[in-house]
């Protein structure tokens, strides 16, 4: 079970949180001018890396705030937690696959 440090509440058990998938997916605007191919890319295509993953989580059964974490998808180690208004931390993306 993960222990996740909510930036607003502190460290809590995984079952208070919900994972919202890959972070930093910018909504293409204006949407009407986006091609079908690019729109599909935005809707469905994901990095799905074996390694570091930047992802959104919500402290759903707590403060209900969303935030981002950097997590390794093999070790499940969480390398960084940051608020949505913060820039992604500088972690070595190719680290230990």
């Amino acid at each position: 079970m993960f222990r996740i440090s909510c930036p607003f509440c502190g460290e809590r058990d995984e079952n208070e949180f919900v994972c919202g998938g890959q972070a930093h997916i910018a909504r293409p605007e204006p949407a009407e001018q986006v091609s079908e191919r690019d729109w599909a890319e935005y809707l469905f295509f994901r990095d799905n890396p074996k390694g570091l993953h930047f992802e959104r989580w919500q402290h759903r059964y707590g403060c209900r705030q969303w935030f981002n974490i950097v997590r390794h998808t093999v070790s499940h180690e969480i390398l960084a937690v940051y608020r949505l208004d913060e820039a992604p931390p500088d972690v070595d993306r190719e680290e230990a696959v």
Binding site: V18, G20, R27, R56, Q58, R60, R64, Q65, W66, L84
Partner: peptide, 14 residues
């Protein structure tokens, strides 16, 4: 729906 709205407000349209 509430969680989804929060995600939109906090993430997409701050």
């Amino acid at each position: 729906i509430h969680a989804w709205m929060e995600a939109l407000l906090q993430g997409d349209w701050p």
